[in-house]
């Protein structure tokens, strides 16, 4: 947070699929340690942007710089990810999932640890499990866990990769509201402890306001009713959370609500 230069620079990024423009003219700088939440209607391109940070999607135009260098075009250990689902390995127990994370961080072809390094990874994994509240579930398989516990495991696993940036793609979208607030507390405490830079996609505006230091709203600035694919979404609001007044919240909330269906005669 002390560094002067931004960690991440987004420079005039566009994303186009064939004739459809998904994102246009994205520009932003993000400092190390920020917690950015991305909100917007479904299909507005916020997940596409997150995938660009992840490296699974490349910009059609423009570039994203990480510490001044173009972000790698494939996923890597500097950027951790938690998806809404399928984030953990179903054939490994909770503990094995975490030990595998440590094994993947090391070179070698087998992805397994032996002897001392395995014992160390195991110890580390058990500590991490305590920290995320999964201590009692160490030997269970993911399908035996509830949705919230599964996401705790996914977060713990991502953190064992020691990422600088943590990407969260609607991680709590499938969870009950009560469990969601527990997860918010967990994410905030881990964010502080590990000094992470977090990007979180959500379609829950309240979640975007409550968590994080900065809120990005993705929406289309221009509309062509004859050719809806002509224009893409951009960042329409870039707000430091905390300095926000209630009227603005209302206004954004209105804008994000899906437009009423127009019946065609």
């Amino acid at each position: 947070m002390t560094s002067e230069k931004p960690m991440l620079q987004v420079k005039n990024v566009w994303k186009r699929y064939d004739e459809t423009v998904v994102l246009e003219r994205l520009n932003a700088d993000v400092m190390e340690g920020e917690f950015v939440t991305l909100v917007g209607t479904s299909g507005c391109g916020k997940s596409t942007f997150l995938n660009m940070l992840l490296g699974t999607v490349q910009p059609s135009k423009g570039e994203i710089l990480l510490d001044g260098n173009p972000i790698p075009a494939e996923p890597g250990p500097d950027r951790g990810i938690v998806f809404q689902q399928y984030s953990v390995f179903p054939h490994m127990t909770v503990l094995e999932n975490l030990i595998a994370a440590s094994a993947f961080a090391k070179p070698g072809w087998s992805g397994r640890l032996f002897g001392q390094s395995k014992a160390k990874a195991r110890q580390q994994a058990l500590e991490m499990l305590e920290q995320v509240g999964l201590g009692a579930a160490a030997n269970k398989y993911p399908h035996e866990l509830s949705g919230g516990m599964k996401q705790r495991l996914a977060i713990a696993q991502a953190l064992l990769g020691r990422p600088r940036i943590l990407l969260l793609d609607e991680p709590f979208g499938a969870l009950d509201p009560g469990i969601r607030s527990d997860m918010h507390a967990l994410v905030l405490s881990l964010w502080r402890e590990y000094k992470l830079t977090v990007f979180m996609v959500t379609h829950d505006l309240k979640e975007g306001f409550y968590l994080g230091t900065r809120l990005w709203v993705f929406d289309k600035l221009r509309h062509d009713p004859q050719a809806p694919g002509n224009y893409g979404a951009a960042i329409t609001y870039d707000l430091a959370v905390g300095q926000m007044d209630k009227d603005l919240y209302q206004q954004i909330d209105e804008e994000l609500r899906p437009m009423p269906e127009v019946s065609v005669a």
């Binding site: 390995f89 993947f104 090391k106 072809w109 992805g111 990422p163």
Partner: peptide, 14 residues
């Protein structure tokens, strides 16, 4: 799952 493994540093054979 494949993306997740990559973000944990896994190579292709792993």
């Amino acid at each position: 799952q494949l993306v997740k493994a990559q973000t944990l540093g896994a190579n292709t054979s792993q």
